[in-house]
Simulated assay, not measured.
Amino acid sequence: MNQAIFNEMIDRISNENILNLVVIKDGEIVVDYNKQDDYKGKRFKINSCTKSIISTLIGIAIDNKLIEGVHQPISDFFPELRANDIEKRKKDITVYHLLTMTSGISWPEFGNWEFISGLVNSNDWVKFILDMPMEHSPGNVFNYSSGGSHLLSAIISRATGMNAQKYAQKHIFEPLDIKNFIWMSDPQGNSNGGFGIEMSAYDMAKIGCLYMNKGKKGKDSLIPEYWINESLEPKILVSRSLGHYGYQWWIKDLSFKETTHTAYFAMGNGGQFIFVIPSVNMVAVFISDNYDDSFRPIYYMKKYLLRMF
């Protein structure tokens, strides 16, 4: 590790609202930064990193043949969509469209947190989402949607007979020894699929390492390798600054001078990140309190972490 680059990075982040930074390189923790001593191992809201865990659970449910596949219509899980007065475009939405945020359902989330408050305060989140009008045909336009992610969570509930929290505990959390977490639910008991988890940076890093290792923990396969590969394939270009979107994971080439590495990451509002960089066998987790610049950790990855080793 280049000590000079490391020292410069720590000097910079200590003056910002980055609360935790955990970096695992070649299977070992090489950076373990906590802005305050009592932040070490503390649970924080990981916001939309929750979405990437929901994607994982969808893949496990498909592998267990509880969901037919990504092209299964969501009306199989929400029979209310089969009613005669439901617009055909809404009936055409599939699991794939929810995973890639191309459902076409109107969802004015970006920069409109009052709208999200309407969801959270509703008596039936699934109904609130499904009652939103269609804005585009499914598959045509990317629109960031915690509502779509919550529908995926409700699908997990209906397909598996247990909510996403319990399904995650059975298939991921218990095998990874993740115990110190909270997962908020809606009034019907569906785990909040868009932004509901609180956990520590160390446990987030365990999930990142699971993706780095193609779904395996030791000899045990917790996530099908084909699902990880499929999830991390770029499905739609969102923007030059954010890159592509896969199945509730982001994909972006991070470049600094002449060096470029492909990063796969879960991203939450405020600066919560799980970065997976296979080319250098690195997982990096940021916990931040920076709602004015949620993307700040991307800068630190490019300027410091990818030059440090």
Rank of each mutant, 00 (worst) to 15 (best):
E109D: 03
D293N: 15
K303V: 07
P175Y: 06
Q72A: 12
I274N: 06
D38A: 11
G41P: 10
N229Q: 15
Q272Y: 05
C49T: 07
S279T: 11
K214S: 15
M132K: 12
S185M: 13
D32P: 14
A284R: 00
D32K: 14
E258F: 11
I24F: 07
K35S: 10
E258R: 14
E80M: 04
T50R: 06
S239N: 02
V31Y: 11
N84C: 09
T160G: 08
N112D: 03
I274D: 02
G270K: 05
S14T: 11
E225H: 07
I54W: 02
S14G: 08
F77E: 02
L242I: 14
W107C: 03
G193C: 09
A61Y: 04
D63W: 04
A159D: 04
T160F: 04
S153N: 07
S145G: 04
D253H: 06
W107S: 01
Q36N: 15
Q72R: 10
V285L: 00
Y39G: 06
K35R: 12
N112T: 00
D293R: 12
A266K: 01
M282D: 00
S221H: 04
M134R: 06
E16P: 10
M101Q: 10
L151T: 04
R240S: 15
K45T: 13
M204A: 10
I58L: 00
P79E: 02
D177M: 13
L57I: 07
Q3A: 14
K216R: 15
S294C: 07
S221R: 14
V22I: 15
N123H: 12
S117D: 14
S48D: 04
M301W: 03
I228F: 00
P278L: 03
I155V: 02
L66P: 12
T56P: 09
N123L: 04
R307H: 13
I58K: 05
T160N: 07
K219Q: 13
G268S: 00
I251A: 04
H71L: 15
D26F: 03
L242E: 12
V276W: 06
K302P: 08
Q169V: 11
Q36M: 15
G194F: 02
Y39V: 05
T260M: 05
C49D: 05
E28K: 15
Y299E: 13
G243Q: 08
V70H: 12
N281Y: 02
E225W: 03
D37S: 15
V238W: 02
Q72P: 09
I24W: 03
P175W: 02
I116Q: 11
L210D: 08
H136V: 01
V238S: 01
T160P: 11
E258T: 14
I207Q: 01
G41Y: 07
I29Q: 14
M184A: 14
E258Y: 13
L151P: 10
M212N: 09
G148E: 06
N17C: 09
M267V: 08
I54T: 12
P297T: 00
V276G: 01
D85T: 08
S288P: 05
M204C: 13
G189F: 02
K252L: 01
G268L: 00
E233Q: 12
